[in-house]
Design a protein around this nucleic acid. Sequence first.
DNA 1: GAGCACTGC
Length: 714
Amino acid sequence: MAHLPIVQFEEQIIRTVEDNSVVVVIGETGSGKSTQLSQMLHRHGYSKRGIIGVTQPRRVAAVSVARRVAQELGVKLGEEVGYAIRFEDRTSDLTRIKYLTDGVLLRESLSDPELSHYSVIILDEAHERSLNTDILLGLVKRLTKLRASNLKVLITSATLDGEKVSEFFSESPILNVPGKLYPVEVVYSRERPISYTESCLKTALDIHRKEPEGDVLIFMTGQDDIEKLVSKLENKIRGLEEGSCMDAIILPLHGSLPPEMQAGFSLFPFPFSCEVKVFSPAPPNCRRFIVATNIAETSLTVDGVVYVVDSGYVKQRQYNPSTGMYSLDVVQISKVQANQRAGRAGRTRPGKCYRLYPSLMYQDELLDVTVPEIQRTSLAGTVLYLKSLDLPDIDILKFDFLDPPSAESLEDALKQLYLIDAIDENGAITSIGRTMAELPLEPSLSRTLLEANENGCLSQALTVAAMLSAETSLLPNRSSKNNEKKRKQEPVELPTGSGYGDHIQMLQIYEQWDRNGYDIRWCRDTGLQERGMVFVKDVRKQLSQIMQKIAKGSTDVRANRRYRESEHDYRNLRKALCVGYANRLAERMIQHNGYRTIGFKPQLIQVHPSSVLKADDDGMFPNYVVYHELIATSRPYMRNLCTVEMRWVSPIFKKLENLDVSKLSGGLHRDVRNGEGKSLELTKKENVAARTPDDHESRVLAARERFLARKAQK
DNA sequence: GAGCACTGC
């Protein structure tokens, strides 16, 4: 591996590690840091007293890098070199170098808070700032003090903010390792485009007409735009004079494509890094245009790209802690992302990157780094995890994050955890909370499982939790023309939740799959996502194993069948869901089919049209539902819901009335009282007030007016 | 009657 740039720095790296407990390594793409750092430390004896652990944000990366390193060392994968990802542990007593996802390392630290098996921890790709990496940065910082004598930590990052990380670790040294990228010429647009699809189209055609051979990678924001551009590009290129240009193949690339459509999808490690390659190379005298989302920024690599077209935008999911609502917004990319995109043009030879925005905009408007995930997501799970670690010397709410989340976001998390009994009124973790933290689920689902265990419907709850873990929609999209074309024969009918909503439908679907012997063809016939369903089965198995210790009934899918057939209302399961989702309750407006959220800044929300829950014969929806997610797209919607009964709901209202966020958060609330903390106080009062009938009605009207006003604005 | 960027335990 003499050609890897990092190799010539071996002595310097080892010396620095010897003298310091934390070292930051900045290495661009192709420097070899992911495969070589672990081997160097192994060679110099660091694996004698413990394991060298290397974390990766993605599963495929952990597997392919481990495979590569095993190959380089000439050992069998799973022996000296192994990996651990969810559902798959390929390590043994012999393992000295272990690649693992950062999520797996967080799980390990639950049972071994000092991570005592490890002599070295390398946090790779820290610049991506995934939620899990950020938590690990905080935990590892603490460990470097506790285990100063026998733990070495290396943080690797591809970019700028090495100094920030170094400061975080009390001025630890920074080593710079050059990468193996070819120069990329950056071309800016003179002005920002009116329509970036048109601008992409024009730029792509210009490249095709004027530039020498080489593939083109175009970064767009989502599936819709990608499909539009692909068809426009096809038309335009077909319209070009024959013989005036080389041939062209135009390919979409985004996450919801089935793997076989991500043509030539393979896990072959790229010679210098270990990324996933897509597509077979273009035939001679033919140019490929790949129109992609940001999946092509980090997760997938397209070889042969010489030209990159960068729209400057990305779709980002963000959470609003005051409303409990997620939204998916098109936002400007950061400078780091812009450079990452440009770098995709220089992997095989010098390339060109066309930025469809002016250089001034790059300078002045683009953020230096992407907003870390920890500041864009609900923290209920994270806070519960940290509370369950019982770190004696650390106040969770002052937890040492590289970039701390807002006080409002932390308070929101506490409030949610309190409503589902994971913490008590003083903010201390309860025994329920402790058990919840052991489950690889979001807190609401963990709580549902525990309640179901008391309720005698554990096996059903396991199924629902597993189904909901498979984020991406498993259900077929009946109205889509594509699907109709594909399936000539009538699709097999799926159950519809018996009027109780999407959770119950999911349970019924999985039970039906069980009755069909988990036949993959059955998924195909019904239009269910096969891969998704297999994933659900794996998750269910894992959850069952964890619950086994405390299970009061059978975890078998069929356990409840006889019971259910005699009583069709899924009462116990819905009760359990009501307890687990106490923080996600919605109440229907008077004489109105809109709902308002309970426990957040009150807002008008609708049942998502994809829901199986339909209005009754009088055109009305049930009075109370719990929802899995609030998402603002064209309007605020509840997705995946379950009907609950009014008398199950009253304990939730009682809890909300007694809610005192300042008690939950200890000292935190005082610090922010003059700032955003106030809004929570308001929320509480409003909630109580809103339950008196008069007030409720005026609130309904006000909400309705707001809604109509927003609609008019559009 | 709408649409979903990407990860992970």
